[in-house]
Design a protein around this nucleic acid. Structure first.
Length: 765
DNA sequence: CAGTGAGCGAGCTTCCGCTTGACTT
């Protein structure tokens, strides 16, 4: 019979720790928070000093019952995480389990190693109420903001919307980036690159050098190329500087999300779900962390592994310090549980993510890469312009042997050059070719999920456990869409000087192609503008940082939580009152796009009953024509041309089997209609351009699928009511008007009537 | 379910952070 009960937050952690502690200890998990503010209403008694009303959510009752039972006969050790939230969990446990706060043992450790845990057991403390109060203040403030702002939006904009300290800033970032893009005007310029070789080099080995100035027009570029004819080129300066490159620190939640996005193309929530699997199998440490710290044990294992793989000179013992604003460091960095395990079994995604974590962790303990950076500056006769060649040579690879971090900046790759010839000042070089290429300044990039997380983290907004859910929320509320955009074609000019001849040609390229980028919707923009206007201080980028400072003061015991909340709530509630009594948000604002060239009537855009739309006004007393905007189009930025295109639907494609074939966009996306049946277009089909043949193909496939869906996978002569069908979520059982899912691993074709009846009976609770 | 472009109005929606499964026809 165990004498001791240790309570941690995560069940996987409980299992590990139980092994370390021996049979006098039973280790259980609270599964995170066990109590929260009442779900209904505000859950805060404002008149009674903001007294919180706590309740145990339905799905936590079972855990709490079990813990309560176990706690009765044992010494309880509260081992929730060492941060504000963890301290609050410990306190809620004392309250709910009826334990004395001043005598219950509270222990903490930030690495899950036997030594760390045994040490923690040696020196228990008690619950730190100042820290708990800081958490209560955080919780109450978030509830006040969320539950007072959201109803204002229901009233002034549209029902079921939401606002909050974190999500509203996330939306704001995306809206402001979009406005930068809308306001951006691309400018063309000419960039000149020469291919030189050293005079007297029999091999004529070419190297590239770029002109330090750029030209605004093609004429200027051409004049410059003319001036190159017959000019002499002399090395003015050749510098070689040693440089070092450092490995990146081990992964936190945010950096893991970024790298998995860039290198593996995984979404933020995919990354978290795969990481969760790895964690549950004991393969990696906890995946929701803001710490870059590695345990002594992990450091030692890295050293051993690096020495084994590459030799001791590649190893460097280095522990990183977390710089992130508001980091709470309750855990280690995300690393393999056992560094010596270089590969794992699992799904392809699990293997790839594990490999990424393994490499990043081990590389963080490797020595710097040693580089030589060479810069050669070249003068030309008759001109003050200079060409500059830059080269980088890796003298010693160090950590690069294993891992190199990706960047968000696609253009960085363009500039990296290799080896340059050995040259000294005064050396002559000869141009083999000089080209002037038209380039264009580009608008700032839209955020993707990971770069948004990165930005939020920099601002200290949100926590590792909320990054993925925050993105889901702003998408679900319809504030933001994640989508791909096709690139557009554009032409650019290129002038090439070879010998004494300048050739000119026009080339074309694609630009602006985007994958999984976030952009605001019209509603997102309206809500953002409204919040900015009425609640500016709350969605200020520094709001979280400034309240965090207050929470820290509460944690230090300098101020009381209720006073802090009171000082916040007074002015905040005034803003709410004034917002409710003043004008509504600008949901009905109309933007005039121009005139329809066919009728001369005004074309305008606004938010209608069914979302954003464009309208061509009708004649006096007549209705106009309406069309919905496409996903990703905005009232603020749609052009007349784009608007007119939207009226091309529905399109008549001709006849099939004596029925009309029409293509349109309905509530459920693009469709082709034949007679009374509808078939959805594939994602890759464009309703504006789809042809007759492809439409027929879709109709035929739809007819075949409909026929297949009506044929059951399996039926039984003994019982006509029992059918195994194929549905959206795979095979299922249909029996007397109800559907039942198959147990995991069941093969539909092998099921007997008896099996099916058992499944039906078993699913009834 | 498959084109629409007001205004009678019940009752509902909502926050952030901790943690995992359960479950969708």
């Amino acid at each position: 019979m165990q004498e001791n009960l240790v309570i941690v937050e995560s069940p996987a952690k409980a299992k590990t720790i139980e092994k370390f502690l021996g049979k006098d200890f039973i280790v259980k998990s609270s599964f995170g928070h066990i109590r929260d503010l009442a779900k209904k209403d505000l859950g805060i008694n404002i008149g009674e000093g903001y007294k919180p009303v706590y309740e145990i959510p339905g799905d936590k009752k079972k855990v709490v019952d079990e813990l309560t039972k176990l706690a009765k006969s044992k010494t309880v050790w509260l081992a929730s995480d060492e941060d504000r939230e963890g301290e609050a969990i410990a306190w809620h446990l004392t309250e709910v389990l009826g334990l004395p706060v001043d005598r219950t043992k509270r222990i903490v450790f930030h690495e899950i190693t036997k030594r760390a845990i045994l040490e923690a057991i040696e020196k228990p403390r008690t619950v730190n109420m100042d820290l708990v109060n800081a958490q209560q203040a955080r919780r109450i403030l978030d509830r006040l903001v969320g539950f007072e702002l959201s109803p204002v939006l229901w009233k002034k904009v549209r029902p079921a919307l939401s606002a909050g300290r974190v999500q509203s800033v996330a939306v704001r970032l995306i809206v402001e980036r979009e406005r930068e893009i809308i306001a951006f005007r691309s400018a063309a310029y000419f960039r000149v690159v020469a291919q030189f070789y050293a005079a007297g080099d029999p091999e004529k080995t070419l190297f590239k050098a770029e002109l330090s100035s750029r030209f605004e027009t093609e004429a200027q570029a051409e004049t410059f190329l003319q001036s190159c004819i017959g000019a002499t080129f002399t090395v003015a300066k050749a510098e070689e500087k040693p440089a070092q490159r450092y490995p990146a620190p081990p992964f936190t939640t945010s950096t893991l999300q970024q790298e998995a996005g860039r290198k593996l193309g995984m979404s933020v929530s995919q990354t978290m779900s795969v990481a969760q699997h790895l964690y549950e199998q004991g393969l990696i440490t906890y995946m929701r962390t803001d710490s870059v710290n590695l345990s002594q044990q992990a450091l030692a294992q890295c050293k051993e592994e690096i020495t084994k793989l590459y030799g001791e000179k590649y190893s460097r013992w280095f522990n990183y310090k977390t710089k992130t604003k508001g980091a709470q460091e309750a855990h280690e960095a995300i690393r393999p549980s056992y560094i010596e395990r270089q590969e794992i079994e699992g799904t392809p995604a699990e293997k790839k993510l594990y490999d990424l974590i393994w490499k990043r962790t081990v590389a963080s303990q490797m020595v710097c890469a040693e580089l030589d950076r060479t810069t050669i500056t070249i003068d030309m006769s008759g001109s003050s312009n200079q060409f500059v060649a830059q080269g980088e040579v890796v003298r010693f690879d160090g950590f690069l042997r294993l891992y190199s971090e990706s960047t968000d900046d696609d253009q960085a790759a363009e500039s990296g050059e290799g080896l340059l010839p050995k040259l000294t000042a005064g050396d002559r070089v000869l141009p083999s070719q000089i080209t002037a290429t038209e380039r264009f300044t580009s608008a700032p990039a839209r955020y993707n999920e990971a770069s948004l997380v990165k930005r939020l983290e920099e601002l200290g907004i949100g926590r590792p456990s909320t990054y993925a859910p925050t993105i889901t929320t702003i998408i679900n509320r319809g504030y933001v869409v994640k989508q791909n955009r096709d690139g557009q074609k554009r032409n650019y000019a290129q002038l090439t000087l070879t010998g004494e001849k300048i050739a000119s040609k026009t080339l074309s390229e694609n630009y602006g192609k985007e994958k999984n980028r976030l952009s605001p919707t019209d509603i997102g923009m309206v809500v953002n503008d409204y919040l900015e206007e009425q609640f500016g201080p709350i969605i200020d980028y520094n709001f979280t940082a400034s309240v965090e400072k207050e929470f820290d003061r509460i944690a230090e015991g300098d101020i009381t939580w209720d006073k802090m909340i009171d000082e916040f709530y007074g002015p905040f509630h005034k803003m709410v009152d004034s917002a409710i009594t003043t004008q509504t948000a600008k949901t009905r604002e109309v933007r005039i796009l121009g005139n329809d060239p066919k009728t001369g009537h005004i074309v305008k855009a606004r938010i209608g009953r069914y979302g954003p739309m464009v309208e061509i006004e009708g004649n006096e007393g007549e209705k106009g024509r309406f069309a919905s905007l496409k996903k990703g189009q905005l009232i603020e930025s749609i052009t007349l041309e784009e608007a007119l295109e939207l009226f091309a639907l529905p399109r008549d494609l001709g006849q099939l089997d004596g029925e009309e074939l029409m293509v349109g966009i309905g509530k459920y996306g693009p469709y082709v209609r034949y007679g009374k049946s509808f078939a959805s277009l594939a994602k890759t089909d464009d309703p504006y351009t789809i042809g007759y043949d492809r439409a027929v193909e879709i109709v035929r496939a739809h007819q075949a699928a409909a026929a297949a869906a009506n044929t059951p996978l399996k039926s039984f002569p003994e019982d006509a009511d029992m059918l195994v069908k194929n549905g959206r979520y795979g095979p299922y059982i249909a029996y007397k008007g109800k559907n039942y899912r198959l147990p995991k691993g069941a093969k539909p074709e092998e099921l007997t009537l008896d099996d099916c009846l058992k499944i039906v009976a078993g699913s009834k609770k």
